[in-house]
Design a protein around this nucleic acid. Sequence first.
DNA 1: TATTTTTTCTTAACCGCTTCACTTTAATTA
DNA 2: TAATTAAAGTGAAGCGGTTAAGAAAAAATA
Lengths: 342, 342
Amino acid sequence: MPQKKPKNTKLTIEDIAKLAGVSKATVSYVLNDKPGVSEELRLKIKKIIEDCNYVPNSAARGLAGEKTHFIGLVIPDVSDMFYANIIRGVEKTSNKHNYLLNLYTTHGEEEKERRVIGLINSSMVDGLIIMAYYIKDNFVDFLKNEGIPFVFIDYPTKDEDIYTVVVDNETGAFEATEYLISLGHEKIAFLEGHEAAWDSKARFMGFLKALTANSIEFNPLLIEKGDFTREGGYKATKRLLEKREEFTAIFSSNDQMAIGAVRALKEKGLKVPEDVSIVGFDNIEASSIIDPPLTTVMQPIYEMGKKATEILLRLINGENIERKNFLLKTKLIKRSSCKSLK
Amino acid sequence: MPQKKPKNTKLTIEDIAKLAGVSKATVSYVLNDKPGVSEELRLKIKKIIEDCNYVPNSAARGLAGEKTHFIGLVIPDVSDMFYANIIRGVEKTSNKHNYLLNLYTTHGEEEKERRVIGLINSSMVDGLIIMAYYIKDNFVDFLKNEGIPFVFIDYPTKDEDIYTVVVDNETGAFEATEYLISLGHEKIAFLEGHEAAWDSKARFMGFLKALTANSIEFNPLLIEKGDFTREGGYKATKRLLEKREEFTAIFSSNDQMAIGAVRALKEKGLKVPEDVSIVGFDNIEASSIIDPPLTTVMQPIYEMGKKATEILLRLINGENIERKNFLLKTKLIKRSSCKSLK
DNA sequence: TATTTTTTCTTAACCGCTTCACTTTAATTA
DNA sequence: TAATTAAAGTGAAGCGGTTAAGAAAAAATA
């Protein structure tokens, strides 16, 4: 037997109105907590809604111009733990506020971008949270014109006019470096991430500032280029070792590369942390599993999703938020990959 | 300056109709590839739609009864890699077919279940993919009555009337056990998962069948209860060791427990795989990172999402699918946690 | 008490699309 | 060529809400 066809058992606002002996409009006002209904009637209608388990049709709401109670989340991918945690933050927060999620992955493809526009055009979402690498100015302009609230995650822009939630990479790197210094390390190597990555640059800046703040001279020979991959970290570390420039610690601009670095060191017979201390960045799951467990900088990923959602929801509700740029703090996770020289 | 208010630059079917000099109805027929429009006109209208970059409003479509081109995915959580991969499978597949995703997480909460019903009632989705632990019969009944197509993932039911995609846990466990046997192991311990978990049971069945198929006697002393957690695997293994019942291999019903088991063995001075071989189940990321890398059974997680979506999409398009129950094959991933006794 | 104001509730238009029933046009048949 | 049938296109209702404007009832004012 095939699945049954629509039975149209669905409750509409009309039904509720009839049950309460009032007009659709009155029910609608109750539904949206708008004035113009006596407290007594309001309560009565609310009870009926509750009893019948009635849920207003979002499509109709969207059409009629009111809130759909859906927010759209645009994200490159879901299989990456990083994004998965963002989703979780967004999802939990929006759910708490009775909002549902429209997930939208771009996989970095240009084509997908245009479809996001379709999503907006579909009056299916009340607002947008966007996290993507390929964001172009004209896309931002489009959004602005569309009049739909939106907030970007991890999109460092100079545009003072848009809401963003960004991790404070620089301070995170600063603190991690200071930690190494506090352990007595002065000859610290730095593994750069992908060239184009702004977060890699921010981390490098933090690293530099910490050296300067502690009057340690910066040694350009101890910088190696990587690409954020495990393999990249491995190769970078091998090149580093071949230079025969002395160092007692490595600050890798992400965990994947740090893991690669550990392997490269082990291969050369060097022990972590006895011979070389290592600090990573990101606190990916693997960082706690490898041997030794990696000291690293945790990004407040979940909090980013949460914060972005909170901002968006306030925006949707017409609140005015003075601050547009939110910098979220990182946290240093101390494990056993660093040794004190003192 | 606050974000600009709606400019209503949005294109409607009306606009397209005017541009083409036809009625809305005609455009609608073109949009939905329905007959009643001459080929010439159809092409002309399609071109205009293309040129204008017009995207029909899903909310209106949903309301008017046609497809919304959204599918709903109901899932317990997103931060778990397992679910994240399901999402990815669903997302990629639905995207390919021009469908967008409505994500819906339940976190195992009863309350959330009711809201799923709201989602359906909102005519926002054309179909539902559901993965949840707490599925109740009345919920299934509700879905059936609602007339909306749906398919369950990993929900082993006797109900012949609903579409499901399930992993063949039993065969997976069977193959893994046969692998150990082929290596010469006969005294194989089994670490059970959570009591209530049907997949744990299926894996145990597969394990048993493999023993029987190879005329190896089943030793009840070598079974230990766990709960699918790392800690649980650790404790179970310690209990196992205390029995002083000889064994040369462990088949753990999931990777987390297997990782715990490795730790317990190491603590007792036993080496993996020299002294004890271990096979896990799930192929979580950590399984490839630990020392030694774990031989394990990979679940086709991504494929489950993909398969479920393909079925759902066909259902949405009114196709009739004879088969209702889809069993997906696992794959044995051989790494270095098993040693041959021969 | 009559009048004005305020509160409460209703009527009806509208959002953008689909679709049934109908009209017009073109193609067939007699 | 006239009558019949099929094809192509249109008009308008309706999906389930919101909301502006108006009507009715209650409260406040004169």
